[in-house]
Amino acid sequence: MAVTGIILVLFLIAHMLGNLKIFTGATSFDHYAHWLREIGAPLLPGVWFLWILRTALVVSVVGHIWAATTLALRARAARPVRYAHRKPVQGSYAARTMRWGGVIILLFVIYHLLDLTTGTLNPVGDPSRPYANVVADFAPKRWYVTLFYTLSVVAVGFHLRHGVFSALRSLGQQTPRGERRARVVALVLAVGLCVGYLVVPFAVLTGLVS
């Protein structure tokens, strides 16, 4: 859970930094997107690196879901008779929404790949012009796309708020002072990634990027 989660967080950071290149203009962004497909060339031919990265990500996602499912099934089995009177978990909101939040994020990732990787659900859907795809995606008249994107990114934020802390704890973070630090790191990462991902659709919505 922790190891696959950290791989995915590192990907999220790189992906966000890439997204922010949209503010450098269409030519630069498209150039960056094309470069992504050819990283490692000429050492690795063509899209090899891309597929190695994709394989690592898919393995991480599947491992992450497998671990989460195991934990959820164990939790269910560990309490066969439920409480008649059960208070909501006193721990953070983020901690108690990890499982359903994860499902929402998975659905979003599937949609997101169909939208901006394959272009199937994108109004432009031209893989050679990613900048145009993004601008068309978050156009004001497609407000529901922006809304779904925003909710999903916020779900990712909550997931990381607990997930990053929990991963550090699972990997042996053990002092009270370290716990405070780990919680701050989790909060900063969660808020930072949320803001980094949300500026793009809102820049398109407000016409800053067009």
């Binding site: 934990l71 560990a78 978990v89 607990h162």
Partner: peptide
């Protein structure tokens, strides 16, 4: 013993 797995939710320490 059939206990569940820990997810660091923190409910234990609250009670």
């Amino acid at each position: 013993a059939g206990f569940g797995g820990c997810t660091n939710a923190g409910e234990c320490t609250a009670v």
